[in-house]
Design a protein around this nucleic acid. Sequence first.
DNA 1: GAATGATTCAAACGTCTGTTTGAATCTTAC
DNA 2: GTAAGATTCAAACAGACGTTTGAATCATTC
Lengths: 219, 219
Amino acid sequence: MSGRAATKDLVLDAAEALFSAKGVDGVSLRTLTKEAGVNLAAVHYHFGSKEEVVKAVFARRIRPMNRERLAMLDALEGSGRPEVEEIVTALVAPALRLAGDSPDRQRFMRLCARLYSEPAEYLQQLYVDEFSQVIDRFERVFRSALPSLSRAEVRRRMHFVVGLLVHTMLNSAPVRRWTSGACDPADAESTLAAIVSFAAAGMRAPVPDPPDGVRAAVT
Amino acid sequence: MSGRAATKDLVLDAAEALFSAKGVDGVSLRTLTKEAGVNLAAVHYHFGSKEEVVKAVFARRIRPMNRERLAMLDALEGSGRPEVEEIVTALVAPALRLAGDSPDRQRFMRLCARLYSEPAEYLQQLYVDEFSQVIDRFERVFRSALPSLSRAEVRRRMHFVVGLLVHTMLNSAPVRRWTSGACDPADAESTLAAIVSFAAAGMRAPVPDPPDGVRAAVT
DNA sequence: GAATGATTCAAACGTCTGTTTGAATCTTAC
DNA sequence: GTAAGATTCAAACAGACGTTTGAATCATTC
């Protein structure tokens, strides 16, 4: 048992590191298995195909992250009506914090963020499978904290929050460069505070008027 | 002259469409040249390598976009001190609007957005080359509109705005799906208004307190 | 300790990749 | 109309890719 699990985990660990550095398409199975110290054919023996390896790599990290998000929401709703800042924190903090130590976290951040930008279809499907439930839940909580926003507007703004989160996780190097080191995304707590302040203000922003006369009929 | 230019543009047009649909790594030169209706070797005759094709595809669209951004800033600064909403509009609108007609625009949006997420190093370099000047300029204008923010905080928040913009451009399908069609990123004006309202509020958000006692010494 | 099933291994498969070649075909200028 | 240069073309190059194979090795059970 320990032998089998070891090989699988060796592959997943190496894949996580390499994928987050060079992208899924940028890593061949030969590079991957050499880095992992396993035989090339082990990938197909244990996973069946490269595609399955990719899905396993993403799922292994995303599931605990989303579980923590939902757990934070549960805790919030258990004690009264949550503030917008708290809901944003429940959405953002698990993504920034979960991986633990610093080099690992950076890897993990880039890995998760890359899921949004990989064009492959099977990853789009994985995205839907893993996130639909979380998105639905956050929509409901956000709506109760922001009753003046329509469902569609809440979802659109949630998408904005996810977007800035993903972009922050994926492009930490440019941020460090632009700010001359003053803002380091690897500093999870400071980044979290900055995102929460920005995103909560954005979620609370007034709904813009429609450009033409449509609004008159609604209001 | 017309013959040469036609082949180059055929390649660039096909590359833009295919790259934005499948990513740079997902498109082979054989697929590309077949789609463009030109000979496989024409790519190396006119561009020298696939890498140069990619750079040309991005540069062809990004340069006019950034020129328009700077022109909008010029116009704003010519008539008094610009509002945060106006600066955000100058940053976002050219990205959403420039491409013109609807299917083309969507392609272009995805193409530009993908530049941020492609891991290849030569694209990171292209990114620095094309955007550094624009970023510097926006930072100065934002700072004069938001004097209470530090340089680093302004840059960090600009990064948030770019992040949500890119994410919106890249993932229009999920937004349409989540909002049941109510928010379509292909509707540039409505998307622009939503982003400006959200992002301006975020830019104006209060600076969060540092977690430890550092702030006491500063204030 | 022999037999059975799980796992590893080196080697090869066919296919696709970006690139190069050298001859054929156009375009242009005198 | 012919020479010179620009452009296209089919064909081939060497290497990398994901995958498959079948024998060799390991672990486990009786």
